[in-house]
Design a protein around this nucleic acid. Structure first.
Length: 398
RNA sequence: GCGUCGGUGGCGGAGUGGUCAAUCGCAAUUGACUGUAAAUCAAUCGCCCUUGCGGCUACGCAGGUUCGAAUCCUGCCCGGCGCACCA
């Protein structure tokens, strides 16, 4: 479990550069990594949502790299912060998480994150252990490390103030809590996204206040979703760890070309020399973007599901979309002979009006067969019905 | 607490008594083109049906005025801002 700490300079430099936007303080961290000292690497996890997406993989892969260098992974489950949470979401009233919910999400997290990191060598802590025990006096003391101006200067706060939006005092407390986590676990390095910069820096400030050496910070970029916007579950542009191999493969294939190289760098462990080569051949036109993407999809699916599954996802994708076949895993319904589209598809479409529109748009057809003309068309033999590009339904006539 | 401005479709944001199911932008869906990419073009984008210049339900909530209200009035709820109160 305690592997020796590696001071391989080349590996260390890759750790400090691949998928990294900023390191604070870079020289100091580099020196520490080279010193052979075993460092404590902190990564906070949010137990509110059980589904990890590829955006999270950036920090987790970084953690993995550091683990391989022999450093100690320290995960903080934000069970306390999740409750008091930051209210930046417009959906107000964040529900109080029950202990069961936290435990459940944590278990899911471990299961999913375990694809990327060595779980058995990682520490897990709950920040309710120490945050819940703080007294008002101590909180006041900590709060003294920051000025109101610091907060107002923050981009996201400033923008909301500008726009006349409400900013809760509670949100201002958030960095204090995250910062104190670093004190509690004696963090040497904290990982996070660039959006976390302020909170990460708060850790340094508080550690100094408590007489600890301030942690170094490694910030990674925020991964774009498949459509180029910020990856967010509400946009539907995420790729989650829990997706089936085919879904994951398909999602990656429908991603914008311009992110291919970025995804290789951030979401895979393909050596950077290969990544650079892919980048160059793509630019030179020697490599078709589709082929690059297929390799990318294979690499990523392999991480989460293994090589065999990746292989069959690729084959399934090829038959479905290149040869007009049917994907595996399409839902199946049984109907009586003579059933009409309206009977069979109203639920799939969402509403009758929607189904009418789809049929009018000639979006509903039998795979390899006719295109339906009206919602009263009947189905007399088993077939696979396709709605638009992505939705399939196997219909079995009894 | 007082004053003031505001709460409209997934989001932003028009509309301020009469064809308003609600201009427009974004997002989304579908078709064409493709590599299930992007870009582009086109259509759709509350629900229901016997598809009609059809019916029903919608503009924070509840009432009211009116032939008629998202638009006016009253009360309540929620948010911003200002002032005060409390210290």
């Amino acid at each position: 479990m305690n592997r020796p700490v590696s001071t391989d300079e080349q590996k260390i430099d890759e750790v400090l550069s691949r998928g990294v936007t900023e390191v604070i303080v870079k020289d100091d961290l580099r020196k520490k990594l080279l010193s052979g000292e075993r460092l404590r690497i902190k990564l906070g996890i949010d137990p509110t949502s059980p589904d990890l997406h590829l955006g999270r993989a950036v920090a987790l892969l970084k953690m993995r790299d550091l683990q391989e260098l022999g450093h100690q992974a320290v995960f903080i489950v934000g069970d306390f912060t999740a409750v008091i949470g930051d209210t930046s979401d417009k959906e107000a009233e964040r529900p109080m998480l029950t202990r069961e919910a936290v435990a459940h999400n944590e278990a899911t997290y471990k299961e999913q994150a375990g694809k990327l990191i060595e779980l058995s060598a990682a520490e897990f802590h709950h920040n309710s252990e120490w945050l819940g025990a703080l007294t008002y006096a101590e909180i006041g003391e900590q709060a003294d490390a920051f000025s109101v101006a610091d907060f107002i200067a923050r981009d996201n706060i400033a923008r909301r103030l500008e726009a006349g939006k409400r900013v809760s005092l509670r949100e201002v407390l958030y960095p204090l809590m995250q910062g104190y986590d670093s004190v509690a676990v004696r963090s040497d390095v904290e990982l996070g996204g660039t959006d976390q910069k302020f909170n990460l820096l708060a850790g340094r400030a508080l550690q100094e206040k408590y007489g600890q050496a301030p942690q170094n910070i490694v910030m990674g970029p925020l991964l774009e979703g498949t459509d180029g916007r910020k990856m967010s579950s509400s946009w539907g542009n995420t790729i989650t760890f829990a997706m089936t191999p085919s879904d994951m493969y398909g999602k990656i294939m429908s991603m914008r070309d311009e992110f291919i190289v970025r995804y290789f760098e951030l979401c895979t462990r393909v050596p950077m020399t290969d990544v650079h080569e892919i980048e160059q051949t793509l630019e030179g036109g020697a490599l078709h973007p589709k082929d690059a993407k297929m390799r990318l999809a294979r690499e990523i699916v392999t991480i989460y599901h293994g090589a065999a599954e990746a292989q069959s996802a690729e084959e399934s994708w090829a038959t479905t979309f290149s040869e007009g076949g049917v994907p595996e895993g399409a839902p199946t319904v049984e109907v009586a002979s003579g059933a009409t589209l309206r009977d069979v598809l109203k639920d799939v479409a969402g509403s009758m009006s929607e189904l009418r529109r789809l049929v009018d748009a000639r979006a509903v057809s039998e795979v390899g067969g006719r295109t339906f003309e009206t919602i009263d068309d009947t189905i007399t033999q088993s077939a696979t019905i396709r709605i638009g590009k992505h939705r399939f339904l196997n219909v079995v006539v009894k």
